[in-house]
Nucleic acid binder design. Structure first.
Lengths: 262, 262
DNA sequence: CCAAAAGTGTTACCATTACACCCATGC
DNA sequence: GCATGGGTGTAATGGTAACACTTTTGG
């Protein structure tokens, strides 16, 4: 359970929140990175809570919500080259801490429970964030732990945070024809199977290796390099990179990259 | 300017808000109906304000945000057969009443202005709503006026409400392949040109009459009736109706009706 | 008869799909 | 050599776009 330092941090946190933040409102970030052939999501565990949660935070009274999302993420990662997009507001009336809150209030020796903000209801807006795994460093806030989890091996999550992740994936799936998603997730040099894995994970189904390759190259956003990468017992796959200028053009125009049937 | 009754209503409204509603948060509805061959949006004008606004409201502490949107609309329309979907949270830090608020506070003879909720910042979540124009009755709240406006002839709107409407149309455009949008907007009997006009308005471009018809009929959701409708100097168009059961099936499966290139 | 708008049908085109075939590598 | 995975090419399919032709109605 919580130690004394955690308790103090928690007090400070909630006191600050009372005055500086918009009440009853939070931001949650579903941060995706690609590592070791798999899509992973960044999760956070506060010492004072048992379950893992999405890295989140609150919005200052004079701060744009988008900026709050960036700030919340910046605190925990070095935040270079990220793609961030709001995808949904979670507004169910039961979105409020339950047993967990009691535990914490016990630990903090707070008596006026029902009126405490920790037990009050929160609206929360979700952002999905695509980062280049290798380019960011994880920096947990004091009193919390940060780690990457595979999408199909999530730990038990706080409140409706699993639903939020699912909704994020669904939203990315809807947008996938318009976002050069690989560019946001992969390092400057990558292989076609890596790119394909990302699309397969997001779409939740296998894609034909050969057709995928042709489709991707036909966008004109991908440059074949004359290099391969040794990867174990099989033919070494070619390396590719993105045509950054054309990609930025495409993103601004909201260019359709693929016809995707879901 | 405001008369005494309006002022009283306004006072009551804001007093109530203080205690019962989630602060700094509102819901705005972009309600679309189809009438006289055109898509129209429902707007609202409070006597106390000069500009038109989107019909909106606030969320009770123990109320789901989706339910609040429904309630807000129900108050002003009879609300039968509507399709309602959250599309975006507007969270810019400058979303707060400006000159207008001063006018009102003048009229209400309120002195402590900067701390008054009327001048404070609001986050607002947008819902787009598709209604059958003929099936609803407009019922303005006391102290307000309600009316339909063509999308290309909007009056001057309050704050960023024009941007909210634009974003709503953009969102519907994104969803148009998955929503049988005509079913939500048209009466039980309709002509193909009417259905096509809706799609053309949403997509912002003309569609080929003949290809459109074939595509729509191929969904299997539309039943040709053996009736026509006299419509002036030309060939009378056929009437169609929707296959409600198949439509509900399709909606539940999130079936893709059209491939739409935007 | 003509103009305008609606209904039907045909053809060319293009993207997607499915699959056959070849190449490289480790065991 | 063989299994495995990556790269290239091709034919069949199916949806879309473009357009010609017919029908109906009022002037």
């Amino acid at each position: 359970m919580a130690n004394r330092q955690d308790e103090i941090l928690f007090h400070e946190f909630y006191d600050k929140q009372l005055s500086e933040y918009i009440p009853h409102f939070s931001v949650d970030c579903v941060t995706l990175g690609f590592h070791a052939g798999m899509l992973k999501v960044l999760l956070c565990k506060m010492n004072i809570l048992q379950k893992w949660i999405l890295p989140g935070g609150f919005v200052y009274h004079d701060e744009c919500v988008d900026d709050a999302a960036i700030r919340i993420l910046k605190k925990r990662t070095s935040l270079k080259d990220v793609y961030l997009k709001q995808f949904h507001l979670f507004g169910h009336k039961d979105r409020r801490p339950r047993e967990e809150a009691d535990e914490i209030l016990d630990a903090l020796r707070i008596e006026d429970r029902e009126n405490h903000r920790l037990k009050s209801r929160y609206l929360s807006v979700g952002y999905y964030v695509l980062v280049k795994y290798g380019k960011i460093q994880i920096r947990p806030n004091v009193g919390e732990e940060l780690d990457w989890f595979c999408l199909n091996e999530l730990p038990e999550l706080y409140l409706d945070h699993e639903e939020i992740i699912k909704k994020a994936i669904k939203s990315i799936r809807n947008d996938v024809g318009y976002i050069p998603i690989g560019y946001e997730l992969l390092p400057s040099k990558f292989t076609m199977p890596e790119l394909r894995t990302i699309y397969e994970t997001i779409l939740g189904r296998e894609l034909d290796r050969r057709n995928f390759q042709r489709k991707m190259l036909s966008t004109g956003l991908i440059i074949p390099l004359n290099e391969t990468r040794r990867e174990g017992a099989h033919k070494s796959p070619n390396l590719y990179s993105f045509n950054k200028e054309r990609y930025i053009e495409a993103r601004e125009q909201g260019m359709q990259l693929m016809h995707v049937i879901l």
